[in-house]
């Protein structure tokens, strides 16, 4: 008797993704959808997609979604959660959305300890707009706006937003993982599960930062992009639990 081990998650609409081959976004979409299914919260979850490659996330997630202006997801999510405290609110944002234009909204949502879950996809570039430098572009990394590679004096250094958020008293659970290997993908799913559970048990702000490959804009094959995360990005953005004051989960 054969048993099926892997299938399309319930809270992801059955449709092809618009993402490039080897893009990490769709892997993360699947993980979020699987977690929502396993925690059985799909009927009371509302998502806030960003402006960026994942703006079309509302075509994929089979939950209520409201679109936020670029960078404002944390504020929109705050409004939603305060009005609907017993619903599960999550934001899904790229690094430009959350760590550049949306920095203030994100830091203050964390500082207020908003009971929301934020999914922070760190792929080191502005993907949708063609590969410009992002706050998380690492030193020496090429992008369309860092000719010759990012230079600290000229372009500043990569921003450790998750660590900064960890300092806020309102942040309950923050972890950085990656989706460049099956092992890390499983680890990401565990982190997402814990983040959603943090919200479900009302213990405050949770965020999972996920290092994700962007082969197109890194101008690498998907396989090389995943290796590059291991070798180059991880030193700047170590995979670790940044904050965890969550109890009995």
């Amino acid at each position: 008797m054969t048993t099926q081990l892997f299938s399309w998650p319930r809270y992801l609409k059955k449709t092809a993704f618009h993402y490039c081959p080897g893009c990490g976004h769709s892997i993360i979409h699947r993980l979020v959808a699987e977690v929502i299914g396993e925690l059985d919260i799909g009927a009371k979850t509302i998502g806030v997609p960003p402006a960026g490659c994942a703006v079309l996330a509302y075509n994929y997630f089979d939950v209520d979604m409201v679109e936020a202006a670029h960078g404002r997801a944390a504020a929109v999510a705050t409004g939603l959660k305060r009005v609907l405290p017993d619903r599960i609110i999550f934001t899904y944002q790229g690094d430009g959305d959350i760590a550049a234009i949306g920095t203030a909204e994100t830091i203050h949502a964390a500082n207020r300890g908003e009971n929301i879950t934020m999914v922070f996809v760190n792929n080191g570039v502005y993907g949708m707009t063609g590969g410009q430098m992002a706050p998380t572009t690492i030193l020496g990394q090429n992008s369309t706006t860092t000719p010759g590679g990012r230079d600290q004096k000229r372009d500043g250094a990569p921003l450790d937003l998750s660590e900064m958020l960890g300092i806020t008293r309102g942040a309950a659970y923050i972890e950085r993982t990656a989706v460049n290997s099956p092992k890390n993908i499983r680890r990401t799913k565990k982190a997402l599960t814990k983040a959603f559970k943090t919200q479900m048990t009302g213990q405050g702000f949770s965020l999972v930062e996920i290092l994700s490959p962007c082969p197109t804009n890194w101008k690498m094959t998907p396989v090389d992009a995943c290796k590059w995360i291991e070798g180059s990005t991880a030193p700047f953005y170590p995979l670790k639990v940044i904050k965890d004051i969550v109890t009995n989960i």
Binding site: I46, V48, V66, A68, A69, R72, A74, A75, V76, A77, T78, G79, L80, K81, R82, V83, L84, A104, E105, I107, H108, R112
Partner: peptide, 26 residues
């Protein structure tokens, strides 16, 4: 009732957007 002193007027209007999308008079 919910009152939030936001970090900026810009964040405030987007919070209102979220509350309004949830059906609340904001």
């Amino acid at each position: 009732g919910t009152f939030i002193q936001a970090e900026s007027e810009l964040a405030a209007i987007n919070m209102v957007l979220g509350a309004s999308a949830a059906g609340c008079r904001a």
